[in-house]
C-alpha cells in the first residue's frame, strides 16, 4: 500500500462518500449495486492517484463514477439502467453540495453520537470499552463475560457499521435539518445491508 495515497484518500476522498453514494443511487436503479460501484470507483481513483493525485479530488471522483457507470451501460452488464434509473442524471453537474466537506469537530462528534445509536447494544459496549476505556479485546471479553472471538466479531461488525454511519449516513443529519430527499438513497448500500 502506498501510504501517501492512503492518507490522501482518507482526507480528500472519503469525506465525499455520502454524496457519491447518493449520486450512484440516482444513476443506478439497483441499490445493491451501489456498494460495489462505490468500491470500484474507489479502486479506480486510488489507482489513478498512485500515478498523480487529482486536485481537487471531488470532480475527479464523480467523473470516475460517471465513466464507470457508462462503461457498465455500454457493456450491458451488472447494471441495468433503463426503466428505473435516471440516465439524465448522468449529465447532472454533481457539485450540488458544497465542495467544503470537512466537518467541524462538533459536527463530527454529532455524527459519532448518531453512529453510536446505529450500533446494536453488544457492539456498542465493545466499541465503547475498547475505544473510551482503552481496554484490550481480552479485557473487554472478560468484563462482558464473552469470548475473545465474540469481541473480535463485534469489532468487525462495529467498524463496518461505523464506516457506514460516519461516511454514508452522515447525510441523515442534514436531511433532518434540510429535508434532502436523496439522502434516503444512501441507506441502500454498504454494510447496512448485512446487518
Amino acid at each position: 500500500m502506498n501510504d501517501d495515497v492512503s492518507n490522501w484518500f482518507v482526507r480528500e476522498v472519503l469525506p465525499h462518500e455520502d454524496s457519491l453514494v447518493r449520486y450512484l443511487a440516482r444513476i443506478c436503479p439497483n441499490r445493491s449495486d451501489v456498494f460495489d460501484l462505490r468500491q470500484e470507483v474507489y479502486v479506480r481513483v486510488f489507482e489513478a492517484a498512485k500515478v498523480s493525485r487529482p486536485v481537487p479530488a471531488r470532480p475527479f471522483l464523480f467523473t470516475t463514477a460517471k465513466h464507470l457507470v457508462l462503461d457498465r451501460i455500454r457493456r450491458s452488464r451488472v447494471v441495468s439502467i433503463e426503466p428505473v434509473g435516471d440516465p439524465a442524471a448522468l449529465s447532472i453537474v454533481v457539485d450540488e453540495v458544497s465542495p467544503e466537506r470537512r466537518l467541524s469537530s462538533r459536527q463530527e462528534l454529532k455524527r459519532l453520537a448518531a453512529a453510536f445509536g446505529a450500533l446494536p447494544p453488544r457492539c456498542r459496549e465493545v466499541v465503547w470499552l475498547r475505544k473510551v476505556d482503552e481496554m484490550s479485546q481480552a479485557d473487554v471479553a472478560n468484563m462482558l463475560g464473552i469470548s475473545v472471538r465474540t469481541v473480535e466479531s463485534q469489532v468487525q461488525k462495529g467498524v463496518r457499521l461505523l464506516a457506514q454511519a460516519l461516511f454514508v449516513d452522515g447525510a441523515e443529519a442534514r436531511r433532518a435539518s434540510s429535508s434532502e430527499k436523496e439522502a434516503t438513497a444512501a441507506n441502500g448500500s454498504g454494510a447496512e445491508d448485512e446487518r
Binding site: V10, Y42, F46, F116, V127, K131, V132, L162, F167
Partner: peptide, 18 residues
C-alpha cells in the same frame, strides 16, 4: 486496500468517543 483504508479510517475516528 481501499476497503481496509476506509474501515481503518472509521475505526480511528471512533477514538474520538473519548
Amino acid at each position: 486496500a481501499v476497503a481496509y483504508i476506509r474501515l481503518q479510517a472509521a475505526w480511528n475516528r471512533a477514538d474520538r468517543y473519548q
